[in-house]
Simulated scan of single mutants.
Amino acid sequence: MTRESSPATRCGYVAIVGRPNTGKSTLLNALVGEKIAATARKPQTTRHRILGVVTQGTDQLILVDTPGIDTGSPKLLGRVLNESARAALADCDAVMFVVEAERWEPLDAQILEMLRSSGVPVVLVINKVDRMARKEALLPFIARLRELHHFSDVVPVSGLKAVNLDALLRVLVGFLPEGVHLFPEDEFTDRSQRFRVSEVIREQLLERLGQEVPYATAVEVEGWRDTARVTHIDAIIWVERDSQKAIVVGKGGHMIKSVGTAARHVIEEMLERKVMLRLRVKVREGWQTDVDAIRRMGIDG
């Protein structure tokens, strides 16, 4: 094939937006085919704008995972995360608005109003259809939401079970403008291995701790050393109070050992090599209201 007759490449950005806990990060991981964002059953798991890259032939789709938007968040960290999500709309070619099947809340309506004013094409993605007790309720739910806005398309999916993801990708690549690919074909994220490791550790904390303590934690990878057979990783788990440190460590160190063991297994699978993981817990009072601390921990905004 001559250079002149080669097909044009396409490349563009699609933001993933929605309220907390609609499964945005699970969906991102499933579309990319790699674990790049923390997923948990708790809201506000995502604290970063994370790029996931899907390259299919001449098309490169750059997915922008955003923190769940929560207009009632009182702390600086919450406001930073909300602004990070809104900022993602500025340069994207389309938006995936993720909602839960058979569930429409006032916050969903607020986010839709924000998207409507942005002028960006919106694809409504109805996630978690695998959890529907009555599948016949899906079509009436779609019809109800179509009355609220002229969506560019509506796609029901399950990020967890990888249902209908090919159809979603076909819809999304239709919004890509012509342009050169911004990432090599074999890259699937803009985030480093250190970041992905910190997300794995934080995910294990979220899964094991109570309702409030997880949101007072942050993970910082401070040391990384590769040897011939083993990768040695040192990470700090930051909390806001001594009482939280005691909970994270657990009686006799049981909790921190459990977190470390589970995280190490996931990291070894991710890096495809043996890992020695060392975790320490440190206290930094009020870090969620400290601009410098939020920046140090790499949180967007």
Rank of each mutant, 00 (worst) to 15 (best):
M1R: 15
T2H: 12
R3D: 13
R3S: 13
P7C: 01
A8P: 15
A8M: 11
V14S: 09
A15N: 11
G18M: 08
R19C: 07
N21A: 05
G23C: 06
K24Y: 06
T26L: 03
V32R: 00
K35I: 01
A38F: 05
A40P: 12
T45R: 10
T46V: 11
R47W: 03
R49D: 01
I50E: 07
I50Y: 01
I50Q: 10
L51A: 07
G52D: 09
G52F: 04
Q56W: 03
Q56S: 09
D59S: 14
V64F: 03
P67H: 11
G78P: 13
G78T: 15
R79D: 13
R79Q: 15
A85C: 12
A88Q: 08
A90N: 14
D91K: 11
D93E: 15
A94I: 05
M96I: 04
F97T: 03
V98Y: 07
V98T: 09
V99T: 12
A101P: 00
L107P: 11
Q110M: 11
E113A: 14
M114S: 12
L115D: 11
R116D: 10
V120H: 05
L124H: 01
V129S: 03
M132S: 02
L138Y: 01
L148Q: 12
D153C: 06
V157W: 00
V157S: 05
S158H: 04
V163A: 03
N164W: 00
N164L: 00
L165T: 04
L165K: 01
D166G: 11
L172F: 01
V173M: 03
G174F: 02
F175G: 04
E178P: 09
G179K: 05
E185G: 01
T189S: 14
T189F: 01
R191W: 04
F195D: 10
V200K: 02
L206K: 04
Q211H: 10
Q211N: 12
E212A: 06
Y215R: 05
A216N: 13
E220V: 12
E220Y: 08
G223A: 13
W224I: 05
W224E: 02
D226F: 03
A228Q: 14
A228F: 11
V230Q: 11
A235V: 06
E240M: 08
R241I: 10
T261I: 14
E269L: 09
E272A: 15
E272T: 15
M276H: 15
L279R: 10
V281C: 07
R284P: 14
G286V: 06
W287G: 08
T289I: 13
D290K: 13
A293C: 07
R295I: 09
G298V: 05
I299G: 00
I299Q: 06
G301V: 04
